[in-house]
Design a binder for these strands. Structure first.
Length: 443
DNA sequence: TCTGGGGTCCTAGGACCC
DNA sequence: TCTGGGGTCCTAGGACCC
């Protein structure tokens, strides 16, 4: 904890949904739900209009549809989210070189790296200007900003500021600020920890402050217990860390229907190994450990891993090991989710040649013929499209060989709706072909 | 029609080494 | 002549976060 409130936490409000409302004027002011639209999808982000119906992140999409049937249900457009996030991260980088992104929509900034300490009014002014810049440069998104003497307090502050606000927790007032909050508000206290704390009579952070460190360690283990003991007293000296090295890379897929065919699963593992290795190579890393993860129909899951003597970035090696690990599992009851991951990442190859006798050379499957999870048609709801005659629009819905498109962009008013055959030659997937991101980079 | 995907961190037990 | 002790690595599972 510092003597000044020099840690800033920024959180974009209902980020994915807000980007959709920005780019789809007909959805502004309406409930929008972004997430997996398949049978087993979950909600990534709900707009504030949807939240009033009790829809929230991580909720099963089936439940969200029950609670808010008239919402717009969209699959995500991650390129658009990444582009918008980059704008915000750039603005944060102008405040300080010490920016630690937590996700596309959240980051810490260490303001102590900037010249002299700022007092309360100066901090509030800086935050207000930042929020105005974010809204200006992103085309209308809002952010909540928290300021405090540590990461923990800054994060709590931005939570208290939501939505669309600023909150400064002045140094010296931290403990009284957090005391009234539910213990669940402390990062790291999830459902399981909260259940254990409840048994000790803990509801609020103030209750937590009554427990001794020994009691917490006994209940939660050494690391968590000591950590929680300190956070309950607003004692947090974790630094803002701009660069965090990648520790693992993984790909996993939940299937629309459980799969019990081991040959099909092996084919999926092979494709996933390819995806993992592509990212491994792009990061210029090599991996020593390969892990396979399986989720059963009852939602329990197991993992199997193997560590090599050397590190590899070869698809054949990762795919072969993944398939061998999968072979060791009895899949006849069906598999709900399959995943392949690598860890033990290093920057140099140390690959012993004897590590793998590549079995029968076998045909290398083309990317397109490997099994992929399919969620409905090739026209995901919410996706950008471009029509030769009508211009840019987005997929409103599809089915029965038809796709319905609404023609509007961030800069138009609500636009008209037209329906086409799914194979209409005038209709192309993706944003306007010749001006990618133009509206976000006016210069 | 319950429960995604990509991560990080922690714990605990066993193997192994000195 | 029953079985110390510490350290490290590996595996597996689980909690948690966005």
């Amino acid at each position: 904890m510092r003597a000044t409130a020099s840690v800033l936490h920024l959180d974009l409000d209902a980020f994915f949904a807000a980007v959709e409302q920005r780019d789809k004027p007909s959805l502004r002011g309406k409930p929008v739900i972004v997430g997996g639209l398949g049978l087993r999808g979950v909600v990534s982000t709900a707009s504030y209009e949807a939240r009033t119906f009790g829809v929230g992140s991580a909720m099963a999409m089936s439940e969200a549809r029950r609670r808010c049937p008239h919402a717009a249900f969209l699959s995500g457009r991650f390129d658009a989210y990444r582009a918008t996030s980059a704008i915000v991260m750039r603005l944060l980088g102008e405040l300080s070189p010490l920016v630690e992104p937590l996700s596309l929509d959240e980051a810490f900034v260490d303001l102590a790296a900037v010249e002299r300490p700022l007092d309360g009014p100066a901090l509030l002014e800086l935050a207000a200007e930042l929020r105005a810049q974010v809204t200006q440069e992103t085309g209308g998104l809002t952010a909540s900003v928290g300021l405090g003497s540590s990461k923990f307090i800054a994060k709590v502050a931005s939570e208290l500021a939501k939505p669309n606000g600023i909150r400064l927790v002045s140094p010296g007032t931290e403990i009284e600020t957090i005391a009234a909050l539910p213990a669940r508000a402390i990062p790291g206290v999830g459902p399981a920890t909260m259940e254990r704390l409840s048994r000790l009579g803990v509801v609020t952070v103030a209750d937590l402050q009554q427990l001794s460190e020994a009691e917490l360690v006994r209940e939660l283990g050494k690391s968590s217990g000591e950590h929680l003991f300190r956070l309950a007293r607003a004692d947090d000296d974790r630094p803002v860390e701009p660069e965090r090295e990648t520790k693992s890379i993984s790909v996993e897929d939940t299937f629309e229907h459980d799969i019990a065919d081991s040959a099909v699963l092996a084919g999926i593992a092979e494709r996933q190994a390819g995806q993992v290795v592509r990212r491994l190579v792009k990061a210029e890393l090599f991996a020593r450990t390969v892990t396979v993860k399986v989720r059963w129909p009852d939602f329990s899951s197991v993992s199997r891993s193997r560590t090599l003597n050397g590190a590899t970035d070869r698809v054949e090696v990762v795919a072969q090991i993944a398939k061998e690990l999968l072979d060791g599992l009895e899949v006849s009851q069906g598999v709900r989710l399959l995943g392949v991951g690598v860890s033990g990442l290093v920057q140099v190859a140390q690959e012993p040649l004897f590590e793998l006798e590549v079995a029968q050379p076998g045909r290398v499957l083309e990317e397109t013929e490997l099994p992929r999870p399919r969620h409905g048609s090739g026209w995901p709801a919410g996706a950008d499209v471009f029509h030769a005659e009508f211009g840019p629009g987005w997929v409103w819905g599809s089915g029965l060989g038809r796709v319905t498109v609404r023609f509007e962009t961030a800069d138009t008013g609500p636009g008209p709706v037209r329906t086409f055959a799914v194979d209409d030659p005038n209709l192309a997937a993706g944003p306007r072909p010749d001006a990618a991101g133009a509206e976000l980079n006016p210069e």
